[in-house]
Nucleic acid binder design. Structure first.
Lengths: 206, 206
DNA sequence: GGGGTCATGTAATAGGTTACATGATTCT
DNA sequence: AGAATCATGTAACCTATTACATGACCCC
């Protein structure tokens, strides 16, 4: 069921979305993306945009419409979405909304190897993380508040709400994890520390 | 503060972790990774492992220790972690635990463009997502239960607990979002649908 | 003794990021 | 008039995924 798309970069999805509204040239896309702060949700750089536009054109999802020249500026190539592109866009977006896909956040990787550090240090580090999580939440929240105050419809901030929800959940998880380690009755701290000493000993004394 | 690492692929972190225990050759690493089900947390394929090992070696974080031959099998190159590697490993893992980094999940990208679909369809799709989220939660939970029953210490399942927490939070978020759209008093449905018709009209009738 | 899968890699290709280039405006 | 920034892209370089190779063991 996990369809293999000709162009899989999320930036391509955004490009299709904007070209659905009207034809644009790459720089205009770049500008629009920046203005809408899309970089918060979709990783992109100036360079990757041209790459993606090239890929989309090759795949027939967008087509070169005209090259115009304005003043002494370099030529600009305007692209329009094709019917195939429209179809691909709807199907792709639909699919992303329906299917939760397995991803690989850095924190998950770190957690899977966390036993390599001694428990007291981990507790300290996680405490530090809690502080930063709180800071991020505050920042996202204030971004939301600002945009709402400026009159933006909350629908266009839904991805920030999602972020906020995830930050909250992670905060709860980390708090919980710390408790698991440090609980005086049932905490993993002691056995973990023991296991850790063993491993260090196996590697030979430093 | 976001340090630029010589090798940034998470797979390299896992390699360093395992080589901290003892020297191994690439295939053995590959096998160990598979046995520990690390692929659930760290994306990797046979090919990328060799690449990463090459990068680590070039960066001086691991070093070729010997090449041995056993029976008629091809030669195997055994790698050992270096002091620089040990330092890098601790520092890197530490940093990952402390700093929540801004990532780009696919669902966030989809949410940021969701206004391009009509609200009733979005409600349908999100309902579908809820079903799949529940299925994934059940699957993760049963994996955890199985491993615990087999005697694994819960510390080594912490990343699965995290996943579970995130799936739960996403479920809550999606449920909430559906409610935001469909609430008969305050729902965004009508205004969204209206806005959507406008946009479609602007593109000209199909 | 022939067909899978294990073991062990290398090479070709595609995908993405960074650096480079260059004329046009705009600001001081 | 020189400095900064906008506008517009190309090219070089890394990274990562896929495909290709090939001998050994294991099962029927």
């Amino acid at each position: 069921m996990a369809v293999r798309r000709k162009v899989s970069n999320m930036l391509a999805l955004a490009v299709l979305a904007y070209l659905t509204q009207r034809p644009m040239h790459p720089y205009e896309l770049s500008r629009t993306l920046r203005d809408n702060d899309d970089a918060r949700s979709i990783k992109f750089s100036h360079g990757s945009l041209y790459m993606v536009v090239g890929q989309l054109a090759k795949a027939g999802l967008i087509a070169e419409q005209e090259t115009s020249r304005e003043g002494q500026r370099p030529e600009r190539t305007v692209y329009a979405i094709t019917d195939a592109g429209r179809t691909e866009f709807r199907e792709w977006l639909t699919n992303l909304l329906v299917e939760p896909d397995h991803e690989y956040p850095h924190f998950v990787a770190a957690l899977s190897l966390v036993a390599a550090l001694p428990p007291d240090e981990v507790v300290r580090l996680l405490g530090d993380r809690l502080v930063r999580l709180a800071a991020q939440q505050a920042e996202v929240q204030s971004g939301i508040d600002g945009a709402l105050a400026a009159g933006l419809h909350p629908l266009f901030l839904i991805e920030e709400q999602y972020r906020l929800a995830m930050l909250g959940a992670e905060t709860a998880f980390v708090t919980d994890f710390i408790e698991q380690i440090t609980n005086p009755e049932t905490g993993w701290g002691p056995s973990w520390a023991e296991f850790h000493r063993q491993a260090a000993a196996n590697r030979g004394p430093s």
